[in-house]
Structure formats: structure tokens, C-alpha cells
Nucleic acid binder design. Structure first.
Lengths: 227, 227
DNA sequence: TCAAAATGATAGTAATACTATTATATTTGC
DNA sequence: GCAAATATAATAGTATTACTATCATTTTGA
């Protein structure tokens, strides 16, 4: 599957960069090293200066690609969800049963922990870690409406939209597909984090897929029991 | 109820302050004005300098109470959950049916939007807004284990713990009470935010309590259908 | 009332998040 | 293959942030 996606250009809103990073060597290097840096240091402690040092380019060059650290984070996260949408399409293609398609969609959101796929040299595992710990910071701030207009959340919205259509196939009268899905996706990411750092806020199990199973059950119960 | 709680000192771990702010006028002023400031500017744009200006005290004086902006945020959030635990105890006292107690617990987490209670001059409405937009930032970072040791999340954990006991009264075999509850509490806060800023990620309704109802249903279905 | 503690006033530092300028490569269109 | 356009490097500079330090002054409580 990596090969299939290797030929695919993931679309990201052009409000999320100054120069498309995948059009140059330096741009690609910024993406690669920023994923490494943010995974290692976290978003708050990451700086363009440090990034410049690991790339071997001056800070100022990075600013030509991304106007701020925030824009870079928005780019990475949007790129991730663009990729996830591609994976989703492949994952659920030719599966007729909507329940199975929904289960596969939910499982997909947590799947990156178990695999190790590289896209454009980026270890998607690490990007997944960034999604878990940092993605919420792109919208939980006072600039959310501006970021939204720049298209920061389009790919995520589309992903949610696609899965919510599956829910409405299962139960056309279900009124809260988006609400259910964002609860599940954000919740799933959070439970991974709690499992590692705040175990009293979750119920960690030995099986690797307990979170996936929990949320699949939660979804199906809610969707089917609704009037 | 305000009166009852007015006589109550909310306990916050002593790792979350340098000097207990409620022991002095300046300390109380820091709490009051920081809630105003963070509500208005958001956490990222808030600074101790600005806070000092609105209090009429130098920055350095604030540092005697809180060693950092982060510690102050942790304090506020812990204080909020300490208060919520008090409210919870009052809310569910003398109610024998655990289902009703659970429903009231979930409703409580979203209740602050509709009321306007003042504790120690702090508009708890505004603190609730801070919980929605900022609380996640206290743990989704690389210093989470240190903050955890300082007791930053104790009050939240206790709140979750109390409600999870209600779940186990309803169904003693239910294996994921903490997971379900943090999914619901964090999810509920997020849906409020999405309703205001990213409507495509939720399913906003005209009724004021649609989020509460959604999560109460979700909880009861999951708890009761579980083996 | 006197000592201790808290606060104010002021200064200073390293780092951050940028912007600006000019020189040097590199690419590209012809 | 070469000039023009473009991208990058090198360097400098700014306002702000997140603190720390010092010392004078005020408040307080035994």
C-alpha cells in the first residue's frame, strides 16, 4: 500500500504554507525534520531555530515556507488527515456491509501505532504521535476562526464527513454522526495518551486493540439503538 | 448553593503554587484577574506582565505565587475540579437510583454554561470556558509526568473516580468506566467548542441540552449493554 | 513596637518569534 | 550554453516573553 500512496500527492489547503514544501528539497527537509523535532521535543519546545540547525539552513529560509510554527503544525496535521483519507478509501473499497466499513474506519484511526509506514521519508508513526499530543492545539486557541478560513481543518472535516456517511447508511435517522465520530476519534487519541501518562483516567488492558474495540462497540450501540 | 460553597475551602495540591493564593489579597487578585485574562486572550497570549498590569502589581510579585504561567493554569483547573467535586457531592446526595446519579453527574459537567456562580469573586462561567479551551494543554505536553507528580490532575482524577463508582453500581462488570467518562467529559467540552467554531465537526441542535442528552444516552447504552 | 514577611520598583538575561538585507547559488527558459 | 529569474545562505536586528535578582518600602502579627 505504501507504494500506491507513494505516487499520490496529498492535497493540503494553500492557506497552510507560503511555498508548497513538496516542490523543493529544502521544503521536504523541513517536513521531515519538523516531524522528528516535534515528536522529540513537543510543539512548545520546538523552534524554527532548532529546526534550522538540524536541517543545516538558516531560520529565515524556513519562514519562506511557513509563516509561523503554528502554520507548520497545521500543515503537518492536515497532511496527515489527507493521507488518512486516502487510506480510508483503500481500506473500505469494495466492502458492501456498512458496519464492517465503519469498524474498519475506526480501527484505521488507531492503526498507526502498530505499523511503520514511510511517506516522503516521513515516519508516519511519529506523525501519529504528533496528532495524539498536538493536533488539538491547532484549534483550541483564539485564532481558530482564522485557521479555519485558511483551510486548516478541511482534510479532517472531510475524513469525518466520509465516515459519517457510512453511519447514515447503517441508520439514516441517526442524528449525531459527526458528534459521535469526533468524540470517538479525539477520545481514542486521548486514551492512548492517558494509557502512557495518566492511567487513572483510562482502563488500560493488555490486548493491543482494546481502545479500538471499545469505540467500535460504543459507536454501534449508539447508532443502532437510536430512534 | 453558592452560600454553602462560599464557606468551603477548595483543596488544591501544594505542588501547584508557591504561596497559596487564597491566603492574601494579592493572591486572590491574581486568581480573579488571571481568569479574566485567560478567558479574554486565551492561554498563549496571556502573560504575567499583562496580568501584573491589570492587578497593578509587578510581574515579579506574581512569580512569588506561581513559578510559571503553566503552574497557574494547572492551579486554576485543579481548583475548578475541586469545586466540581463539591458540587457533585451536593448534587447526588440522597439520590438512591444510580442511573439518576450518573445522569446528574454528566449534566453537571456541562451545567456551568447555563448558570452564573461566583466563588471568591471568580465568575465560574469564565473558568468553565477556560476548562473547555485550555485544560487539555496542561497534560498534552512533554512535562506531563512532572505536572502529574506535582498533583496537577488529582482533583480531576478524583472527580472521574467518584463518577466511575456510580457506573460500577449500575453494572459491576463494566470494565471501562474511566475510559467512558473521560471520553464523555472531554468530548462534551469539545462539542461546545465545535458548536461555536467548527460546526461541521458536530451536530448542533437548537435545544440547549442536546450535548448532555447525547452523552447520557451514550453512557447508559454502553454501561447496560456490556456483558 | 519591633522583627519578620510580603510587596513594590527596577534592572537584567537568555531565548523566542519573527523581519530585513544583501550576497551567493541554482534553476529555467530560450 | 547563457542570461535572467528565483531560491537559498549569511548575517543582523527587533520587540516580546519568561523568567531571576536586588534592594527599598510597606504591612503584619506577636
Amino acid at each position: 500500500m505504501d507504494n500506491l500512496l507513494a505516487n499520490l500527492k496529498i492535497k493540503v489547503s494553500d492557506g497552510l504554507f507560503q511555498i508548497d514544501p513538496f516542490t523543493s528539497k529544502l521544503g521536504k527537509s523541513i517536513i521531515f525534520h519538523s516531524v522528528e523535532m516535534i515528536t522529540e521535543l513537543g510543539f512548545e519546545k520546538s523552534t524554527f531555530k532548532k529546526l534550522g540547525e538540524s536541517i543545516g539552513s538558516p531560520e529565515a529560509s524556513i519562514y519562506r515556507y511557513f509563516k509561523s510554527k503554528n502554520q507548520l503544525l497545521c500543515y503537518l496535521i492536515s497532511w496527515y488527515w489527507g493521507w488518512m483519507e486516502c487510506r480510508l478509501m483503500l481500506e473500505i473499497a469494495n466492502i458492501s456491509c456498512p458496519n464492517v466499513r465503519l469498524e474498519k474506519s475506526i480501527a484505521l484511526v488507531l492503526s498507526n501505532a502498530n505499523e511503520n509506514i514511510f511517506i516522503e521519508d516521513v515516519e508516519m508513526n511519529k506523525l501519529h504521535q504528533i496528532i495524539i499530543s498536538e493536533s488539538i492545539k491547532t484549534y483550541l486557541n483564539k485564532d481558530v476562526d482564522t485557521s479555519n478560513k485558511e483551510g486548516a481543518f478541511l482534510n479532517y472535516k472531510q475524513f469525518v464527513e466520509r465516515v459519517s456517511k457510512i453511519i447514515n447508511e447503517i441508520n439514516p435517522k441517526y442524528k449525531y454522526p459527526q458528534m459521535l465520530l469526533t468524540t470517538i476519534f479525539e477520545g481514542a487519541h486521548l486514551q492512548v495518551f492517558f494509557g502512557e501518562h495518566l492511567p487513572r483516567l483510562t482502563n488500560k488492558q493488555n490486548t493491543p486493540d482494546y481502545i479500538t474495540k471499545f469505540y467500535i462497540n460504543l459507536a454501534l450501540q449508539s447508532i443502532n439503538s437510536s430512534i
